[in-house]
Nucleic acid binder design. Structure first.
Lengths: 300, 300
DNA sequence: AAGTAGTATTTTATCATTAAAGTCTGGCTA
DNA sequence: TAGCCAGACTTTAATGATAAAATACTACTT
């Protein structure tokens, strides 16, 4: 067969919704207008209009599109198979690797994986090609894919790379003028860190979000598509890993908050040397946490 | 249809070559041994053996594979369509963008491009997915691909990112012990730079290779798969761009050599501050060159 | 003249198909 | 009789055909 008619089905139902807001006798906008409104091609709009006409909902003759009767619930057509987006696929894929601890150098079965994640092999292939740039998977010489996986080496190099990017961001940041919005962001982050420290005994789980906000704020001062892209990947992987590692979480998070505060204060003092040192210290801790979580996971 | 039998054809001819090295009456190794030798599956080996038997070159019965007559030139089968590797595709693709100056935000026609580059749409899609991580292309909302292209913005951000990586490499490098091989590499590079400077009037073209060697030496001290991957991309793009920009080449290259020498000497003195400053200066020049070459190209 | 619908063409995502890879088992040989 | 080998079979992946969607073009209406 060919492409699915999922776009058509979605558009059809969305057109029903639009008809629902009208009363019989009203006329619908032009084909082009409908197409733009539903973010779909005119071909689909015409297909949907034809169906509505056949079902007697609409009287469609050339430019006149008069509503005959309001749509009923039974007019809707079924959207079979929830289309999985690339974003969802990313989540599921990382989840699969980490949760089920897929070992390194595992050959990946495209057909089976595609079924498992509810996507077509075509989509999965596109997805894997993207990750191959980050060395998570690799093409096998005789065809197919190989999962290189989250080895300790990978974690070390990822952490080191992260450190390179964040250290650079820090150097940029401390040179920014006082009116730059990052300073107020940092101040509110500082306050939030202190606040969380006060209720750390019970709410240590909240640190994850705070951590993400903080790192996003720091790296956000570097307006660079490559940095941004990498930051997304790094944050994704770190986030996922910590999600499954719960050992000493309270203690770990408390220590991290103190490290963040040291770092924030150094930046606020515009002390580049101290800020870089504090950043390095925190990132080193982070790296060790990632490594030990990896080890713990492998032993479990 | 299904996959091409290119692997079979190649293996068949390679088996002919192997038979050419034998005399009639000799017997061939086991299927598994042949498969491993030719880096191919046993299925293919068996197929090739069957064909050789049918053609009367070989008497194949179970384990005995006796050569009947040496292979003739006419026994070879044609390898239709030279299979383009992903590496070649990369070269052709960048070449196409730069040489024909494809503007930014051009919708890419997969079918047409695939024909043009002599690959299947499947392969091209895989390739584009890889580049989408580096923001050179993007998926369009309604399907298809969009070339974001080598805009000035892209060049600036790529250069900045390069500077981040190289600056970090410099900091690592100056901290390395005297017995590290990079020091002797640097010294020979220094000598080569001076040598080229002496004959710059006529041989300024040689700088490109020297430049690549030098940057590879510096970034090579950082053993990190992400850095390495990016370095590959950066070197690819810079290399390709400079290949087409010939304005003031002699003068530009001479200036670059002097900048390199400043940088090398600072590193040899283990003067981190001066080395970083020299690196920054050179990378800034490089960025400007890339930008002006881009501008020149767009005006032409 | 501007915008709209009809028609035709182009292009993409999917699927059945076939080549190739991988696996298992029994038999031969050393 | 232990290890290797080949036959038979199963599984997997890359491809061309195909239908769906997008787009381009033309003609018409207001």
């Amino acid at each position: 067969m060919a492409r699915t008619d999922a776009r058509f089905r979605e558009a059809f139902n969305s057109l029903l919704d639009l008809c629902g807001g009208l009363t019989p006798g009203d006329s619908l906008p032009s084909e082009a207008a409908l197409a733009e409104q539903m973010n779909v091609s005119r071909t689909i709009v015409r297909g949907a209009l034809r169906d509505l006409d056949e079902r007697g909902l609409l009287r469609w003759e050339g430019r006149s599109k008069l509503l005959v009767r309001p749509p009923k619930r039974s007019d809707r057509i079924e959207l079979r198979g929830d289309s999985v987006t690339l974003g969802e696929l990313e989540t599921r894929f990382l989840d699969w690797i980490l949760r089920f601890d897929v070992p390194a150098d595992t050959p990946l079965n495209i057909t089976q994986l595609a079924r498992q994640f509810g996507v077509t092999p075509y989509t999965l292939q596109e997805f894997l090609s993207g990750w191959s740039r980050f060395g998570l998977v690799q093409r096998r010489p005789r065809g197919g894919w190989l999962l290189l996986g989250f080895t300790a080496d990978y974690a070390v190099e990822l952490s080191d790379f992260r450190a390179i990017l964040e250290t650079d961001a820090v150097r940029h940041l401390v040179a920014l003028p006082p009116e730059h919005p990052v300073w107020s962001t940092l101040e509110s982050l500082r306050v939030d860190h202190h606040a969380l420290l006060d209720r750390i005994e019970t709410e240590y789980h909240d640190f994850s979000k705070l951590d993400e906000r903080f790192h996003a704020a720091v790296t956000g001062v570097v307006r660079n598509r490559f940095v941004v892209e990498f930051q997304k990947v790094i944050s994704l992987i770190f986030h996922y890993h910590f999600q499954w590692d719960k050992t000493d979480e309270r203690q770990r998070n408390e220590a991290a908050i103190r490290e963040h505060l040291q770092w924030i204060k150094a930046m606020q003092r515009r002390d580049e040397g101290a800020a870089v040192a504090a950043a390095r210290a925190h990132l080193a801790t982070s790296k060790q946490t990632l490594l030990s979580s990896l080890r713990g996971h492998n032993l479990a």
